[in-house]
């Protein structure tokens, strides 16, 4: 497996530098607000809390990408398990420990397939794991609740195993760092842009019953910003490949932009259906891990298959590193 230098690509340097700069500016702005007594104490406290969470989260998100392939796969595995834990406790799936255990095995298997660089197994796991979850609880001869527990198990596996593991598989590409950093930061930025445009422009609500705080202006603004940013960064990342044409780059940007907001709205729908505000409490100012990473869930497979169509991941790299063959 070819390993590139950490900062071999200028986009990697640019994103890391921009992230550090944004955090520093944010700290300076909030610090000035605090010194001059601007805003309410509650707002300042909330801002410091959010900034603190970002200062912890960003190294946790970007650190594994900079450290290397195995770190990415390990981090995505842990992220998938953390998302599953929050999901199963919110939906009640945890009361079916056998189904939860099968989903855990599915998450581990999907990430193992990525670690092994075995694409055949990676894609085979979608139907195979679904089959195992579907059959898993039948021998217990307890049909009551079968559809609910099986559907929740498949839902969880598809999102946190099969879906997220696409990020792991991307790490088989020697030049994975700029791609992953672009996805992680633009998806996070999409949330911030939606919030900012919504506050600045206001206007009609997007889907008031699903997510009362989201507005149409916020959604369109975030889509525009994300599309342009992804297209611009992709221009540098995929230069010289069939993907590097304006219409494909913009299409890719739209896919990431829509995927990010769709993931957010999907989690809002889940929370509204259950009747809870946050999925967890682990990240002060954000809620749970899922509240922060919901936008990545749908972007990961969508971006993977778009890039795969034009460029591919890990092409020409050795495969089945662990299983051989």
């Amino acid at each position: 497996m070819i390993r590139q230098d950490v900062f071999a690509h200028p986009v990697t340097i640019g994103i890391v530098a921009a992230t550090v700069a944004v955090l520093a500016i944010a700290a300076a702005v909030i610090g000035t607000m605090t010194l001059r007594g601007r805003g309410t104490p509650e707002l300042r406290r909330e801002l410091w809390l959010r900034l603190g969470s970002w200062c912890l989260l960003l190294p946790l998100m970007m650190g594994p990408v900079l450290l290397g392939r195995e770190w990415v796969i390990g981090a995505v595995t842990l992220l998938g398990l953390a998302c599953l834990r929050e999901f199963d406790r919110a939906t009640g799936l945890f009361r079916e420990p056998l189904v939860a255990a099968l989903v855990v095995l599915g998450i581990l298997a999907a990430n193992f397939a990525a670690l092994d660089h075995w694409y055949g197994f990676f894609v085979a796991l979608w139907p195979l794991t679904v089959g195992v979850i579907v059959v898993g609880t039948i021998p217990r001869d307890r049909p009551a609740g079968y559809i609910q527990r099986t559907a929740l198990g498949i839902f969880a596996y598809m999102l946190f195993g099969a879906g997220l593991a696409h990020l792991s598989y991307m790490a088989n590409e020697p030049g994975f760092r700029p791609i992953l950093l672009m996805l992680l930061t633009t998806v996070a930025l999409s949330d911030v842009a939606a919030f900012t445009f919504g506050k600045l422009i206001g206007g009609p609500k997007l889907l008031p019953a699903t997510s009362p705080n989201k507005s149409v202006s916020g959604a369109l603004g975030a889509l525009a910003v994300t599309t342009l940013l992804v297209a611009a960064l992709s221009f540098f990342i995929f230069r010289g490949t069939p993907m590097a044409q304006p219409h494909w780059l913009l299409t890719f940007g739209v896919i990431v932009g829509i995927g990010a907001q769709a993931g957010d709205l999907m989690l809002s729908s889940i929370k509204r259906d259950i009747g809870i505000k946050d999925m967890g409490t682990i990240l002060p100012g954000h809620g749970g891990v899922l509240d922060r990473f919901n936008s990545l869930l749908l972007v990961a497979p969508a971006a993977f298959h778009f890039i795969q169509f034009f460029v591919g991941f890990g092409m020409g790299q050795p495969t089945r590193l662990i299983t051989g063959g």
């Binding site: 406790r89 939906t91 009640g92 259950i274």
Partner: peptide, 8 residues
């Protein structure tokens, strides 16, 4: 859909 009693 019944969240864990200790949710939140």
């Amino acid at each position: 859909l019944r969240p864990a009693r200790d949710h939140g």
